[in-house]
Amino acid sequence: MPASPTAVDDYLKTIYHHTEWQAEPVTPSRLASELGLAPSSVTEMVQKLAAQGLVTHRPYGPVALTAAGRRRAAAVIRRHRLVETWLVREFGYAWDEVHDEAEVLEHTISDRLLEGIAARLGHPRFDPHGDAIPDADGEVHREPFVLLASAPAGHSGRVLRVSDRDAALLRACEDAGIDVGHTITVIGGGHVSIDGAPPVGLPEGAPEAIWITA
């Protein structure tokens, strides 16, 4: 049975996400974990994606997007992140409220409406969480970055991205004054200074969810 376009898009988007902010390739078992599916189901789908020329994969090896797969993934991610940005700017959604809405809308709005949204927003390059919005050609532009957990004491960098995987963590970061565009200086011991203010403790899990300029 052919895979549904929505299922294909969800796989490609997950593969794209995995290597967007780190270099480790995604394995079928990791893909199964991230999608919440049985490994056998993922193996079957990966084989279908490979047959369509969207991914490359060898037995027991990682899964990687082909050029065609990357273009399709970037197109879906462009839709998702433009919708998230639209909901925050035009409808007053908080940054921890937009992901699930965008998951639905990305599959339903027309290309015409999408490009109208992009034009109304001024063709933004980043979504509310700091993730790059691919342009109409699938290209993205990012500054060199480092995961906060890997930044040494004394390092200062501007917040480029806060992962949207955990809505509760997003709210905790917001309560601590951590948002895209603010400058973080690593103090050590789980403490940072934000925009030169006195040190504050980081919410649990934050160092693994925040990327700053290298």
Rank of each mutant, 00 (worst) to 15 (best):
A3N: 02
S4F: 08
S4I: 06
T6I: 14
D9I: 06
K13E: 15
Y16N: 09
T19F: 02
Q22M: 10
V26Q: 03
P28V: 03
S33E: 15
P39M: 06
S41Y: 04
V42K: 07
V42S: 04
T43E: 01
E44C: 02
L49Y: 00
Q52S: 08
H57G: 04
P59H: 12
T66P: 00
R71H: 11
R72I: 00
V76D: 02
I77L: 15
R78D: 02
R79G: 00
R81T: 04
V83N: 00
E90A: 12
A94C: 13
E97A: 05
H107R: 07
T108V: 15
S110D: 08
L113W: 09
L114T: 09
I117Q: 07
H129L: 10
P134C: 06
D135Y: 03
R142N: 03
E143T: 09
V146K: 12
L147H: 10
R158Y: 00
R158H: 01
V162P: 12
V162A: 08
D164V: 01
A167I: 01
R171P: 05
A172H: 02
A176Y: 11
D179H: 14
V180Y: 13
V180W: 09
S193E: 15
D195K: 13
G196A: 04
P198I: 05
A206R: 09
A214V: 00
